[in-house]
Simulated scan of single mutants.
Amino acid sequence: MRYFTDKTIYITGAASGIGFESAKQLIKQGAHLVLFDVQPLDDALSALQGLNKHNASISTYELDVTDAEMTSTKIATAAAQCPPDILMHFVGITGPWTFDKMSQAQFERVMHINLFGTRNVLAAVRPFLERGDQVMVTASMSSFTGSYGYSSYSASKFAIWGMMQSLNYEWKPLGIDITVFAPPPIDTPLTQSEVGVMDAAGVGMKKLAGELNIEEAVKSMLKGVENRSFLVVPGVMANLIRLQLRFFPVSWVNWIGNKAAAFSAKK
């Protein structure tokens, strides 16, 4: 028996990327999966059924997390059948535009999906969480430090970090543990969508944190959930940057960032 065996795990953003990889690793451990995504889940379901050696249950729901009413309804429907032991929330989009090139609609879309979508999922699942249950929310290294071309994305992820710290104070005494997954760039369709869109300076600054293999990143996240860790930051370079942010003056951090952006822009 492994930690996730026979646990019911709700996964948002399960059709692709980190959500799908998490579902693959969890089904191999015998977890029961409840999958949500605005994208079709047929291909993901077929792949997971091929890995389902423990005859765990798998159910799917179409879900747009920006629709608060739909989110509440779909999660309540799922919980009536099988309430969650763990929520893993992965839905998010990138925003690889400089502030001067970004429209108001682009900025608002990033905030609606990343921030308000996270809030909607948490509010919808909260009535079904009991003592001992867990919540894992995906943030980013951009929750702690800005980056060239990431003003909308960083704004959304900074807000998620603050929200989850506050919820930890509120829910921890009730026996509900929170994990915040804050990775550097991971090779997923999300990061691939930035190719040809993000300016060279932004690409260069992202490379400072290093790009992680998706399988290893998910293993780190799952280990953090198993240990009931509040913060999981995978990757050596990402942790060095995190330490720099904690122990060096902001003026030093900004100097390094400005130099990195200037150097990358010249390439």
Rank of each mutant, 00 (worst) to 15 (best):
G50E: 04
E62W: 00
I75F: 05
T98E: 05
M70W: 08
A76K: 06
T98M: 05
K53F: 11
T66H: 11
M70T: 11
A76E: 06
D100G: 01
G146T: 09
L45V: 10
M141R: 11
S147N: 12
S152P: 13
L63I: 07
S72N: 09
V91Q: 03
I75S: 09
A79F: 01
N52R: 00
V137H: 06
K157M: 08
A68N: 08
F158W: 10
Q104N: 04
G95I: 07
A155F: 13
L41G: 05
A105S: 11
S72G: 10
M136K: 07
G149Y: 13
I86A: 01
A79C: 08
D42A: 06
D67W: 15
M88P: 14
D133F: 14
L41V: 07
A44S: 04
V137Y: 10
R109P: 10
A68E: 11
Q81N: 02
T73S: 11
K157E: 06
W97Q: 05
N52C: 15
P127N: 06
P96H: 02
A47H: 13
S59L: 05
D64W: 06
M88R: 09
Y153I: 05
P84N: 00
S57V: 12
A78H: 10
V121C: 01
Y61I: 11
S46R: 13
V137D: 03
Q104L: 09
A105L: 04
D67T: 08
T60N: 04
G117T: 01
M111C: 12
K53Q: 14
L41S: 07
S142T: 02
Q49Y: 06
T71V: 10
K53D: 15
V110L: 03
Q134Y: 13
R109I: 03
A44W: 00
F116M: 09
S156Y: 01
S72M: 12
S147R: 12
V65M: 06
G50T: 15
